[in-house]
Design a binder for these strands. Structure first.
Length: 290
DNA sequence: CACTTGACCTGTCCGC
DNA sequence: TGCGGACAGGTCAAGT
């Protein structure tokens, strides 16, 4: 579900609302979603104050005054929704943005009671997780250390981009874009969008890419990610922001989930194919194989 | 080592 | 309406 733009939107929403609040207690409705030592959780989670909310790749960190952090991965269907009691201001956003009306619901896995509201970790498919980890140890975790560069940071130069993708020169470019060790934060939606914008067939091997194609792709990646953020994230099914509102339902998407609709560039019907065992959307005219 | 595939879960949608 | 199968935004552990 959530890719870099969606996780970024959740981060911003949470940061605005929950920093400086105290965690009064927590309730784990599904063990797999928060597989922590219970004594540890009681000691370092309850009574702690939230000091910051951060993001790296698709992973969120909620830092605590106990020097521990909640590390959260939403995977496909995870949501983090904050509510205050009887708050009527929610839902005042985009007119298409419907709101989760009842919480907890049948996908709620963990509830944090905060001093001024409640934070719900919902996750229909139970692939996501949250873990309590000493803040100082986060950067040393394998899962963090092995991540590729953040594509919206200055460090994401053309040279770094090509060095990274050429680590997998015999793979198809789409599967490489999805590899978090190569570039952090791209998922299935933004991979398809970036490849369309760069006019590259997703099955093209990295070593077959021309220099102009690589330059187009390097520019396309931050462009589509920023568009996603501007649109408030994209909602295919489950994604909602920290207020429980959906994103702009893929209004910015040029190919994703638009099979049989005309390509915005040339009018050819978009096709849905399978690449690296993922649903993949292309314009067969603009994104021809070499 | 590089690369691909199946598994993890639950819900929904589509065709029969 | 019911049932089986395919599919869904992500990542691993296995396999070749």
């Amino acid at each position: 579900m959530p890719e870099l733009p969606e996780v970024e939107i959740v981060k911003r929403g949470l940061k605005k609302r929950i920093v400086n609040q105290q965690i009064l207690k927590h309730e784990v409705l599904r063990e797999k979603s928060f597989p922590n030592d219970k004594i540890l959780a009681k000691k370092f989670l309850n009574k702690a104050t939230i000091t910051d909310v951060r993001r790296r790749a698709k992973i969120l960190f909620i830092d605590l005054s106990s020097d521990y952090s909640l590390m959260i991965h939403l995977k496909m269907t995870g949501q983090l929704v904050y509510r205050t009691q009887g708050d009527s201001s929610f839902g005042a956003g985009h007119p298409n943005n419907s709101l989760i009306s009842n919480l907890p619901d049948n996908s709620t896995r963990v509830v944090l009671a905060l001093s001024q509201g409640q934070l719900f970790f919902n996750d229909q498919r139970v692939f996501g997780w949250m873990k309590l980890i000493p803040t100082a140890e986060l950067a040393n975790l394998d899962i963090i250390r092995s991540l590729g560069p953040e594509p919206l940071k200055k460090e994401f130069t053309y040279e770094l981009f090509t060095n990274q993708i050429e680590r997998r020169k015999n793979s198809g470019i789409k599967s490489v874009l999805l590899d978090q060790k190569i570039i952090a934060g791209i998922g299935n939606i933004y991979a398809d969008e970036a490849l369309w914008l760069a006019r590259i067939n997703p099955e093209t091997k990295v070593h077959e890419l021309t220099i102009p194609a690589k330059k187009r792709l390097h520019k396309a990646i931050p462009k589509v990610l920023n568009e996603g953020i501007s649109a408030g994230g994209s909602t295919d099914r489950n994604y909602v922001n920290a207020e429980g509102q959906k994103g702009s339902y893929l209004v910015f998407a040029k190919v994703f989930r638009r099979e049989n609709l005309p390509c915005p560039s040339c009018g050819t019907p978009i096709e849905k194919i399978r690449v690296a065992s993922r649903g993949t959307h292309i314009c067969p005219n603009c994104q021809r194989k070499l």
